[in-house]
Nucleic acid binder design. Structure first.
Length: 423
RNA sequence: GUGGACGUAGCUCAGCUGGUAGAGCUCCGGACUGUGGAUCCGGCGGUCGUGGGUUCAAAUCCCAUCGUCCACCCCA
């Protein structure tokens, strides 16, 4: 049979409550911080990512879902969320709005990678971007927003790593310093690292080989080689972060994957997650807007993976209650069934969650279905009820039954359902 | 792209060194002719991922392919 494409997955009804809890909490936190939601297209002009994310990044080099449409355009399913938001900012003249412009999103991302735990070819990211300010307090606002999201949800064992990538002023000088150091130890590095040296030297810090780690102990770090302005900015971020009770670790070996990052970078990890333990990351990207054709505009942002949050929550047994139904209507006999269907629609109009049997079950089977669905009441309508003009309403919790006039049924149920909802 | 493990009923799995498939759960029904959550009984349900090969005979052995999982690269 035909299966879903490799690296994709279906979200079935039982999976929804947890995901919705994450999305709802994120929406609440973003809105409370003054971020407005933005949706950008599923695909963008390929050049947006080539220029924005950078040709040297793995994403652009080998992970993009790129295709040519019937008009001959090269388009790409978006592999990340920041470049599209920056594009929209420019396209809609948002630089004329009061700055910074604060936006959040919840979107699907696509990357052609080998799937593994916490990694998919299509995944969902929640993200926020604040464009138009270089205030270090903005970096901290973003960090704290996500820290409080993880905390509100109960994500276990979250750790924050913080670093600075410097800017166009200090990074080139540092790159030269690092390169000459790496040249001096080159023969001792693993093959992967030797390759990194030529493509993206900073990446050597990601290596897990003991021998490389030992050699790199003596390597110069970017955080120790910031220019005056970047140092002041970084110090300010740290001071502000210290105002909150959030722990963090300065990690000069933290390197983020996109070329557009400048100054502050950070990453949240969850120790429960195995190899793909990064649950979210972000930072400042003061050069991106200009890079893709807008005015010089400082900005900072963050993205976090829905699947990884969900995995972390599951590891901590966080499980919101499944959706239940208020009322299940049991119709017995063809004549009574017409009345049952009529009551069904009356109750639904009042926003009562109500369902009925469509599988031809016997009375016992329908009762069982009412129980399975978690309904609070079963409304039984048979020949006896039609004759008496009253439905038999069974409280599924206590097992007590009441005879209720059909005319009074909606009000009778509504009163009791609302009373319980308020508890 | 590289390396390793694994694909048997909707789900979780059993099936020894080849002799043409089982259990538990779920679902439907009965015991209880119109009443759930307990028990017992019965029933539905399988191209043994797919395609080749070896063999008298393949779920079982071999190859390929697809997929899943784990790790690397890298990333959410």
């Amino acid at each position: 049979m035909v299966q879903g494409p490799k690296g994709t997955y279906d979200v079935l009804p039982p999976d929804q409550p947890l995901r919705e809890a994450v999305i709802t909490a994120a929406r609440r936190i973003f809105q409370a911080a003054g971020y407005g939601r933005i949706c950008t297209p599923t695909f963008e002009d390929t050049s947006l990512f080539e220029r924005g994310v950078g040709l040297s990044s793995d994403i652009v080099r080998k992970e993009m879902y790129t295709f040519t449409d019937k008009g001959g355009r090269s388009l790409t399913l978006k592999p990340e969320g920041t470049a599209p938001v920056a594009r929209a900012y420019i396209q809609h003249g948002m630089h004329k709005l009061p700055q910074p412009v604060k936006l959040w999103y919840y979107e699907r991302m696509f990357r052609f990678e080998r799937p593994q735990a916490g990694r998919f070819r299509e995944h969902y990211q929640l993200g926020a971007e604040a464009i138009g300010s270089d205030d270090p307090a903005l970096d901290v606002e973003l960090i704290m927003m996500f820290a409080s999201l993880y905390e509100a949800l109960g994500v276990p064992e979250v750790e924050l790593r913080l670093s600075s990538m410097g800017d166009g002023n200090c990074r080139p000088a540092y790159a030269r310093k690092l390169s000459s150091f790496l040249a001096s130890v080159l023969p001792g590095l693993c093959r992967d690292c030797q390759e990194r040296v030529s493509i993206n030297p900073l990446r050597v810090f990601d290596c897990k080989h003991e021998s490389c780690l030992a050699l790199l102990k003596g390597a110069p770090l970017l955080v120790d080689n910031l220019c005056h302005e970047c140092q002041l900015h970084f110090d300010s971020v740290r001071r502000l972060l210290d105002l909150f009770q959030t722990g963090y670790r300065i990690d000069g070996t933290l390197v983020r994957g996109f070329d557009y990052y400048t100054r502050t970078t950070f990453e949240f990890e969850c120790a429960r997650l195995g190899a793909q333990k990064g649950i979210g990351g972000g930072g400042r990207y003061d050069g991106l807007v200009a890079e893709i054709g807008g005015p010089a505009t400082p900005a900072a942002g963050f993205g976090t993976g829905l699947e990884r949050i969900v995995l972390a929550l599951k590891s901590a047994d966080v499980a919101p209650e499944a959706a239940v139904i208020d009322v299940f209507i049991i119709g017995l006999g063809s004549q009574a069934r017409e009345m049952a269907v009529k009551q069904l629609s009356r109750l639904r109009r009042l926003d009562i969650a109500v369902d009925i049997d469509y599988a031809g079950r016997k009375a016992k089977g329908q009762m069982k279905q009412a129980d399975r669905l978690g309904s609070r009441f079963a409304v039984i309508i048979g020949e006896n009820e039609i004759a008496a003009g009253r439905a038999t309403v069974r409280d599924m919790g206590s097992g007590k039954q009441h005879a209720v006039l059909f005319a009074e049924l909606p009000a009778w149920l509504l009163e009791r359902i609302e009373a319980r909802n308020c508890q």
